[in-house]
Design a protein around this nucleic acid. Structure first.
Lengths: 255, 255
DNA sequence: AAAAAATCGCGTACTTTATACGCAAAACTA
DNA sequence: TAGTTTTGCGTATAAAGTACGCGATTTTTT
């Protein structure tokens, strides 16, 4: 059984167990070396990249399916995951036409001009170092890409990432961010770098410090030095109760 | 052909032309007599109410389908319409079980425990007086309901309205609202009443006035009196360019 | 008809939040 | 050892948000 047949068989079986028409796409954000990263998959045998995604089992909540897919790719539990947009255009191809895409994927025989998927976009924030990227059945490789060095992705996935980033930026203005993107212990500078990277602009160090302090989401880690200096800055952790209180004030998690 | 058979025939035909699994639900907001209203449909022959909704034709953008449904119910064009959440739980019934719901609707024979829909929620802002509510094929009646006097709706539609309202309230904090909810010419008090109703709290008249002026979205109508007073307050209209500029800054309309 | 109450536009004072920038201590650079 | 960088923390100023006053006009009350 060659690759095409194998994929075809898998797809057919998978489609029988999952909801038709609905697909999920996940924009999984990580943060490393002052860069915002996104987890991408490389399709088997080619050099074409796409977002991790999947389908919803017939007896599964849509949000649960997104959680499952995120867990499969990252091997992580308990993450920040939020649906942000539905991508439902008839033509969801940016750089390659639909037919071209099937050809690139080596499954040209599966192409049908009538087929379409409506995709529910989710974005997740995960801790870069804790992630062990795992490819799925259709992929050879799963790895991080820097958000400003993305290749041309399949389907409309560049658009999806753009909207996800916009949503994340907006989230930053009314909710704290960082709990799932940073290690448990971090310095104020680490947190500020994260914010600067997401927002794409510089922030004043001293004002940032003050703002975080008034939010009350940080507490000194016990490993902090008594006297802070260049080599040994204070280390913080998030006060989870307060952090999640600020999250809950605005979250929409019904459905 | 009795009602059940008629409905069944219509549903089957409709389902053949539309995408499976995906439904749309519309929360259409209007404003009248200092109350926020929502457009609801009464199912044929019963006293059970639900949100207007519909399905997506196989060759139709999802957003276009929402626009079409909104137009069908209101006979209006060019409205503010925005998708806000996907409702994808396995069990989307709040007050009546799925089977019970089918019974209430008089289509018990169509019930299947395996059937499920994932619903994309849209909310719209329309001008109350301009709307001519039109029932659909399954409904006897389409009319406005005050947002705080809603009955127990079918499915999870009370939840959907709650999330829509929350989204609308948030929108108010970073975007102007009113263009599609008020008549072309209105007084400052009218606009303030709208804001107070949406936010569910009182605002200071004088501060509200100042804030709207700094936004720069209002201009005096030519029908305004030279000297304002109780009986004859100044009348305003929206400066559309400035208004839409503020909208565009934050809108997410890809997909 | 006069007094009281309500509503309108517009203004001022105060408080909270956001932004700009200063400074000393520690540690690295050379 | 002198200069530079990075850290925590402070102060001054600007902007945004909130409380409330006032006179003119109209409606309601008596």
């Amino acid at each position: 059984m060659n690759f095409q047949e194998e994929v075809q068989k898998f797809i057919q079986e998978h489609f029988q167990n999952t909801l038709p028409t609905i697909a999920l796409d996940l924009v999984i954000f990580g943060f490393h070396e002052n860069q915002l990263k996104v987890l991408l998959l490389r399709w088997k045998g080619g050099d074409y990249w796409m977002l991790p995604g999947g389908r919803v089992y017939k007896k599964e909540d849509v949000d649960d399916a997104a959680t499952r897919i995120l867990r499969e790719r990252t091997k992580l539990e308990m993450l920040f995951l939020q649906q942000f947009h539905v991508f439902g255009k008839l033509n969801r191809s940016s750089y390659f036409s639909a037919q071209e895409t099937y050809k690139l994927l080596g499954i040209e025989n599966l192409y049908s001009p009538d087929f379409r998927d409506v995709s529910v976009g989710y974005y997740a924030l995960v801790e870069y170092t804790k992630v062990n990227p795992v490819a799925d059945n259709f992929s050879d490789e799963c790895r991080w890409w820097s958000i400003d060095e993305l290749p041309c992705l399949l389907f409309d996935h560049n658009d999806i990432i753009r909207v996800a980033l916009k949503t994340l930026r907006r989230q930053l203005s009314y909710q704290p961010v960082g709990y799932n993107l940073l290690p448990e212990i971090f310095s104020m500078t680490d947190l500020q770098s994260l914010y600067e990277t997401i927002l794409g602009r510089q922030l004043d160090r001293r004002n940032f410090y003050k703002q975080m302090m008034t939010y009350g989401i940080l507490e000194l880690s016990e490993s902090s030095p008594k006297i802070a200096s260049r080599k040994t800055p204070y280390l913080y952790r998030f006060k989870k109760e307060r952090y999640e209180q600020l999250l809950d004030d605005e979250e929409l998690t019904i459905g």
